[in-house]
Write a protein that binds this DNA or RNA. Structure first.
Lengths: 340, 340
DNA sequence: TTTATTTACGCAATCGTTGCCGGGAACGAT
DNA sequence: ATCGTTCCCGGCAACGATTGCGTAAATAAA
């Protein structure tokens, strides 16, 4: 089953003109007489002619589409960020191709190869928790391929980056817990590969330090798969529950970890916040419907997406290689509810 | 800033061969000697040659990418369906371009035009609640463009369709409420434009009828924007609360309406299920974390996506126009929890 | 030795579009 | 009458890859 669209040749043949004349008429060139222009334009609209973008891409060496790689779209933070990306992209006539790494390094590499094989003009990526080796990204970047990182950035690669103040977000969350009277505060975070994990841990430690609470290694749990596997979180919590004195609060450093943590605590019959308080990074829009309503650190995901897309367009449309790279840092907001 | 990839010409020039020889060598043609093949293959891998998909698309008149239009990706049902779509598409070497209608008819039409002109090989669509006029889809369909509908299908257009047994899902949910002792059961559903709305209302009415409960028009509320506007839901609930005797349960017929309804009830201080029970369609993966844990009708979203994609591939890859169209109907499952 | 066949490759067209060059016709200026 | 312009338009090449056809050289068959 095929679908044949009208081409410039069809118009030329029907009107007894050459393709170049038709092309110029459609682009309103001054070299074409008003009558011919009108003739061509009328016929074109009558057969609903649309230029073939593939032919244009081949000629102009750009596809007007960009690739986005995130961990998964079934995640409030990422789907909101994608909305921001899309809003800018469509404004500028760009197409967005979304791919998911599902927090797998192999999948990230494969999907990147696929995207980069030439059909996209640039890439927006938030790397997977499992990503430690950066060769797949470095290789592309060194060949001049436009890349912008958002949220889970890569420090080693020199390009535009958009993120939140992770240190501050974690600091605020932890400080909030301390001020509520909690002192034995655990931290469940993503893989140590991610700079955002390290920054969030640093913010957590700084808050403790300021209140003269000694951070304990046994209270910091890294999840290599970012909570894609629920038993990873369960294992972390089991270990935390064995620590004496038992932690009285948990700070979770991502959307997936936050809900995963709640799920595990609930299945164990541990009450929030009576037994253990919870505060976490989350962009879910139904946190106030949870039991209990969750105190969360929220990221401006939509704005991050918009900014990342704008920066990528700067790279793509710049005539000369860009040397000055931006590092945009947005603020998080702490939304206090019943879980603390 | 540009990014130049190696072409078949570069290989030909470097090796002193013609482009046709290189092309054939890469495709392992029998017309090329073993030595030449090896030479070409080695050099190609050494410079990391990848065929330009755009040039291929132009020649083969197909882009190996398909379009998906859903209301919004920040919705559990749709993001799960997209995962299913992707899993099949990826397997078959197809690219997926996702667009959102945000439940707006105009946006749906625009994005459809855009996709169609971007030379996609086929379309998967779950129409917006606001879609009543179908000309944009009919026009494409009549020109032989492959389209498969999923979830929110369109009865008037004759092609493959994938959906759940909406009647049964609604019937089960309503019957569950009745068996729990509720008798004044309201129904909040999507726009009447959608066949799934009508089917779900019919299932709701049938359950009532079987238990000799007379359905009341005042208890059925249609939301034209599908709950994209919270005040649409609020207005519906306000009206329901004025009905005497006051309804003691609400059956909500979509993900967005379900969480929206809970949000409104909560803001009004109405307790669930003591004041009003709630059961709704939802594919959220955190329903058991809600307050109260929600009784829901769940759709096999991932499978729906997979099947829809498979059917679309059938259409795309069929040599002759397809006449026999399938109508796949999957089962829903009722997950009973504390909200009823 | 001559003819037929195979081997191994190049040429050119093709997909849809645009840019560059060239050229005929009409016109005014000399 | 000749030259120079301007106006309008057509032809050709190119983007990257594939493919039918042609063909020179090598080999086999006569």
């Amino acid at each position: 089953m095929k679908f044949e669209a009208a081409t410039i040749k069809d118009i030329a043949k029907a009107l007894g003109l050459s393709t170049s004349t038709v092309s110029r008429a459609l682009r309103d060139s001054h070299e074409i007489s008003t009558e011919t222009k009108q003739l061509v334009l009328e016929y074109a609209t009558s057969i609903n002619y649309r230029p073939n973008p593939i032919a244009l891409s081949l000629k102009e060496k750009r596809s007007r589409s960009i690739g986005v790689i995130v961990a998964e779209i079934a995640n409030s933070f990422f789907s909101q960020a994608i909305n921001g990306i899309e809003s800018v992209a469509y404004d500028k006539g760009y197409n967005v191709i979304i791919s998911q790494s599902h927090e797998s390094y192999d999948k990230e590499v494969m999907t990147l190869q696929y995207l980069a094989s030439r059909s996209i003009d640039g890439l927006l990526i938030s790397v997977s928790t499992a990503t430690k080796d950066l060769e797949h990204l470095k290789a592309l970047h060194e060949r001049g391929f436009p890349i912008v990182f958002f949220d889970r950035i890569v420090e080693d690669i020199h390009t535009h980056k958009v993120m939140v103040d992770n240190f501050r977000g974690a600091y605020d969350a932890t400080m909030h817990l301390i001020k509520q009277g909690y002192t034995r505060i655990a931290n469940i975070t993503n893989s140590e590969n991610l700079s955002i994990s390290r920054e969030r841990v640093a913010g957590y430690i700084e808050a403790l330090a300021q209140k003269n609470i000694k951070p304990r290694k046994s209270l910091i749990k890294y999840c290599f798969h970012g909570g894609m596997l629920l038993n990873e979180i369960e294992e972390a919590i089991n270990q935390l529950l064995k620590v004496r004195p038992r932690p009285d609060a948990i700070f979770t450093a991502s959307d997936k970890l936050t809900t995963g943590c709640m799920r595990v605590l609930k299945s164990k019959g541990i009450r929030i916040p009576e037994d253990i308080a919870v505060v976490g990074f989350s962009n879910s829009d139904i946190i106030e419907l949870l039991d209990p309503p969750l105190t969360v650190v929220r990221q401006p995901a939509y704005e991050m997406g918009q900014i990342a897309m704008e920066l990528l367009l700067q790279l793509i449309e710049s005539k000369r290689p860009v040397k000055d790279f931006e590092r945009r840092i947005l603020a998080t907001s702490l939304i206090v509810q019943g879980s603390t």
